[in-house]
Design a protein around this nucleic acid. Structure first.
Length: 420
RNA sequence: GUGGGCGUAGCUCAACGGUUAGAGCAUCGGACUGUGGCUCCGAGGGCUGGGGGUUCAAAUCCCCUCGCUCACCCCA
């Protein structure tokens, strides 16, 4: 047996029904906020990711699916979506549009050890806004994301925000923190001793009780950012209040991608295991320029599809299957007429299935039952002789003969079609 | 890359080192040739993840390997 490769999963119908529901909700919500869909390639030049995400990040250093194609060019399966959207924005000179707001959805690839809510091929729904560095954009985009969660009937998630400052003030904070940490180096956990140089911000995010204790009175980034960044952050909070969104401030929240500036955020749940973020993102004001465009600001987020689906299942959000009509034809003549009816029903928008007559009526009824059919239609010689068909309600067990002519119209009044 | 837990039928799980590896659910067939759900009867389905070793004898003990899973790391 040939199996799928590690961390690459088949999404089966039970799951795809939920995924389609999520996607449909997302498309509708994003549309009302003025976002349009962009479809970006799955493969990009490796350089795009190393330059945007950051050469020293784990993603670029050890998690990318990178290979040489037949032209000896280094290509990479996208580990995230933002870089590609930014590239497309620059490449197609989309900065001429007054509203540069895009959303995308699709698979991403990272070579990591799979665990709960983390796979090597995983799906994200993301959105990006370009060209406006107003703090209202941050709040408005967060409002959109939270509205999507509202629409999906998902509560029990929480929004945490932070500011990482800009390219002027963050290095100063990093330095300050490094000095603080160096003095306590011996007391930190093994991981964090290594992190002091590699990624000092990570230390204040460490889960080890020891490190939490030690970093209690470490300098906070929010006390260290510059005046402009501080004003921006205060305004984001002000606008979030105007959009009536609740949040908490977490000055210890760190993001793994180098391009983030100022506002960053996470939406987390305690139902997700160790990978507790269902969505995350932030502002990236230097990225467009870094990738060769004008000095254009950006703000965006990505939602983890598998994690979101997990939460919806946890919350018991079961999607009702659409009602089905099951046709049973008895005998050759009846089968011919049943096929005609089957086609007519489908073309009228009903979900219709038909049994196989050599199975016998009893077994066909069983199949109808197992499929969860709402209505069974039975056509035999008796019915055929009178141009009628037996209509059985599978819930109540009641049945009646009705005229074949006008059947589809009649069924519509029974209200068994999907509610629009 | 590191560590823990687990691999027996499609699924959930039994089986002290000792008959032909079982049960429930699911599937298929029958009781019931024009009527589903309930009940009863029957059937199919297993290289016990793979390889090696110990033993008269291994699903069971040992070693290796692969896979799944959770966690670290990291992240959506």
């Amino acid at each position: 047996m040939i199996s799928s490769i590690r961390g690459f999963n088949d999404i089966l119908s039970e799951e795809t029904i939920l995924w389609q529901h999520i996607e449909e909700c997302a498309r509708n919500v994003f549309k009302t906020y003025g976002f349009s869909e962009i479809r970006i390639p799955i493969l990009e030049r490796t350089e795009l990711f190393s330059r945007s995400i950051g050469n020293t990040t784990d993603i670029v250093e050890k998690e990318m699916y990178t290979f040489l194609d037949r032209n000896n060019e280094s290509l990479t399966l996208r580990p995230e979506g933002t870089a590609s959207v930014v590239r497309a924005y620059i490449e197609h000179k989309l900065y001429n549009s007054p509203t540069a707001k895009f959303y995308y959805l699709g698979p991403m690839f990272r070579y990591e050890r799979p665990q709960k809510g983390r796979y090597r091929q995983f799906y994200q729904i993301g959105a990006e806004v370009f060209g406006i560095d107003e703090p209202r954009v941050d709040a408005e985009t967060l409002d959109m994301l939270l509205f999507l969660f509202n629409e999906l009937k998902l509560d029990n998630v929480k929004l945490e925000i932070n500011s990482l400052g800009c390219k002027e003030c963050r290095p100063l904070y990093k330095q300050k923190l490094k000095i603080f940490l160096s003095n306590k180096k011996e007391e930190l956990c093994e991981n964090c001793q290594r992190r002091i140089d590699a990624n000092p911000l990570r230390v204040i995010d460490c889960k080890s009780q020891k490190c939490i204790e030690i970093t209690k009175d470490a300098p906070s980034i929010l006390d260290s950012i510059c005046g402009n960044c501080k004003t921006h952050f205060d305004d984001v909070k002000k606008y979030l209040a105007l959009f009536d969104r609740k949040y908490s401030i977490n000055p210890r929240m760190v993001r793994g991608l180098d391009y983030y500036t100022r506002t960053t955020f996470e939406i987390t749940s305690n139902k997700l295991g160790a990978q507790n973020a269902v969505a995350a993102g932030g502002r990236y004001d230097g990225l467009v320029k870094e990738l060769g465009g004008h000095d254009t600001s950006g703000f965006g987020f990505a939602i983890g599809m598998e994690r979101l689906a997990l939460l919806l299942k946890e919350a018991g959000g079961i999607i009702e299957p659409e009602p089905t009509i099951f046709l049973i034809g008895i005998g050759e003549k009846a089968e011919i007429e049943a096929i005609r009816i089957l086609k007519e029903l489908r073309e009228s928008g009903f979900i219709a299935e038909m049994g196989y007559q050599n199975k016998g009526i009893k077994n066909q009824m069983k199949i109808a039952d197992k499929l969860g059919a709402r209505i069974a239609l039975i056509l035999g010689d008796d019915e055929l002789a009178n141009n009628e068909i037996t209509l059985k309600d599978m819930k109540t067990g009641e049945q009646d003969r009705v005229k074949i002519e006008g059947l589809a119209t009649g069924l519509k009044t029974l209200n068994i079609k999907k509610q629009a």
